[in-house]
Simulated assay, not measured.
Amino acid sequence: MSISARRVETFGTTIFTEINQLAQQYSALNLGQGKPDFDTPADIVAEMIKAAQSGQHNQYAPGPGIASLRHAVANHAARFYGLDIDPDQGVIVTAGATEGILSCVLGLVDPGDEVIVIEPFYDSYVPNILMAGATPVFVPLHPPTWTFDPDELRAAFTPRTRVLILNSPHNPSGRVFSREELSLVAELCIEHNVIVINDEVYEHLTLGGSTYIPIATLPGMFERTVTVSSAGKTFSATGWKIGWAYGHPDVLDGVARAHQFTIFAVHHPTQEAVAYALNQPDSYYNNFRTMYQSKLHLLMDALDGSGLTYRAPEGTYFIMADFSAVFDGMPRDFTRYLIKEIGVACIPPESMYSKGHVHIGKNYVRFSFCKSDQALVQAKGLLSKLRG
Rank of each mutant, 00 (worst) to 15 (best):
S2F: 13
I3G: 11
F16C: 07
F16K: 05
Q21V: 10
L31P: 02
T40Y: 08
P41D: 11
V45M: 10
Q59G: 02
Q59F: 06
Y60C: 13
A61F: 12
V73M: 09
A77E: 13
Y81K: 11
L83N: 00
D88I: 10
Q89P: 00
T98P: 00
E99S: 06
G100I: 13
S103H: 02
V105W: 07
E114G: 04
L130D: 02
T135A: 13
A155W: 02
A156G: 01
N167K: 10
S173Y: 05
R175C: 02
E181T: 06
S183F: 11
V185T: 04
D199M: 11
G209M: 02
Y212S: 03
T217W: 02
L218T: 03
M221P: 10
F222W: 02
V226T: 12
T227N: 01
G232C: 01
A245S: 11
G247S: 07
V255W: 14
R257L: 12
F261T: 15
V266L: 07
H267A: 05
T270H: 08
R289K: 12
R289W: 05
R289N: 03
T290A: 15
L296D: 01
L303T: 05
G307I: 08
R311W: 02
A312L: 03
G315P: 10
T316Q: 03
Y317I: 05
A325D: 15
D328I: 09
M330Q: 08
R332N: 04
Y337R: 04
L338N: 15
I342L: 06
I347C: 01
K355T: 05
V358F: 01
H359A: 13
R366T: 15
V377I: 11
V377Y: 04
L382M: 14
